[in-house]
């Protein structure tokens, strides 16, 4: 028997964002031969996955999830990933760049730039080629970073996953141009028009599970370049005289643990997090060490195939 909705309605603002994203996700399922949803375990991925589940109810999304594992994610992220895949009942593909592993690439041994290139960017291209995906969902938002503000919702990638800002197609209305030739692909960003606020408001309204690392807790950390780095396992070499201390910290964005800075915080619940964010004076990307090299660095990474 069909159930009748009893849930409190979303605000008009969130309802509109939700409907737009569901429309985008359905479009990909209808227009592409073999789509995949990139699942990076963070809050944005969580929202995107939730939207996909809603888009195809009472069925399941007609595509798998894929995680590009750099082998340096927080342990809690990996546990959460496996728990979520099981809970939603979707196929989860996990890919790690074997060449990178053979070469011993890592954020500490190789530096963040090389690690990101080999274990994220190259690994992603390998995985997309290996399975022959012609469309890949990503959870990026336009408000995250300046060069993202011009990204299309359906972003065209030429042969070899190349991204040319001048080859991007104009997007009018919701009439997405989904036509591609062999060897070309599309990256799709259903959360393009969401802000960090919207994501957290929606997580709260829809009761979406998120990795516990977003909530403040006593964690073992060391101070590096003005930010707190968590000692998640014994692969993080300590400098002379450096000892991990327990601090009440949380993460605004998640990635490879040696590259993800924590902030000191008391916010241990979703309403606390939202209140803290609304009072925040720094952007969420501040904790991400890969963006700060120079101002145009994200654009460069995208040209090279980074999500």
């Amino acid at each position: 028997m069909p159930s009748t909705s009893t849930k409190a309605p979303l605000t008009p603002h969130l309802a509109r964002l939700e409907a737009e994203s569901i429309g985008i996700i359905r479009e990909v399922a209808a227009a592409f031969r073999k789509p995949v949803m990139l699942y990076s375990i963070g809050k944005d991925s969580g929202v995107m996955l939730h939207l996909a589940l809603k888009a195809f109810a009472p069925g399941k999304p007609p595509f798998p999830l894929m995680h590009v594992d750099t082998l340096w994610k927080f342990r809690e992220m990996i546990a959460f990933r496996d728990m979520m895949a099981k809970q939603v009942g979707m196929e989860l593909l996990v890919h790690t760049n074997p060449d990178g592993v053979a070469r011993g690439i890592g954020p500490i041994a190789s530096g963040s730039a090389l690690h990101t290139q080999v274990m994220k960017t190259d690994a992603l291209k390998q995985a997309l080629d290996k399975f022959g995906f012609d469309a890949a969902f990503g959870g990026a938002r336009r408000d995250e970073e300046k060069s993202r503000a011009k990204e299309r919702i359906f972003s065209f990638r030429g042969p070899g996953h190349s991204w040319d800002p001048r080859a991007q197609r104009p997007e009018l209305w919701s009439l997405f141009n989904t036509r591609i030739r062999d060897g070309e692909s599309i990256r799709v960003f259903p959360l393009s028009n969401w802000t960090e606020y919207d994501v957290w408001d929606y997580v709260l309204a829809e009761d979406i599970p998120v990795v516990p690392l977003y909530f403040a807790k006593q964690r073992p950390v060391v101070k590096r370049s003005g930010t707190w780095i968590m000692v998640d396992d014994d692969r993080l070499p300590l400098n002379a005289g450096e000892t991990p201390e327990m601090r009440m910290v949380r993460f605004r964005t998640l990635g490879c643990y040696p590259l993800s800075g924590a902030v000191e915080s008391e916010a241990a619940t979703l309403p606390d997090i939202i209140a803290e964010m609304r009072a925040a004076r720094t952007s969420e990307r501040q904790g991400r060490l890969i963006d700060t090299d120079e101002d145009a660095s994200m654009e460069k990474k995208k040209r090279e195939g980074y999500f």
């Binding site: 603002h13 336009r142 408000d143 300046k146 060069s147 503000a149 011009k150 800002p165 991007q168 104009p170 393009s192 028009n193 802000t195 606020y197 919207d198 145009a296 654009e299 460069k300």
Partner: peptide, 26 residues
Amino acid sequence: DGLEAERQQGITIDVAYRFFQTPKRA
């Protein structure tokens, strides 16, 4: 002014989407 190319030329060459909100509206 987002993309590197237009930063250098001092002009805006593509559509960019910006987000802001006030207590009344997004």
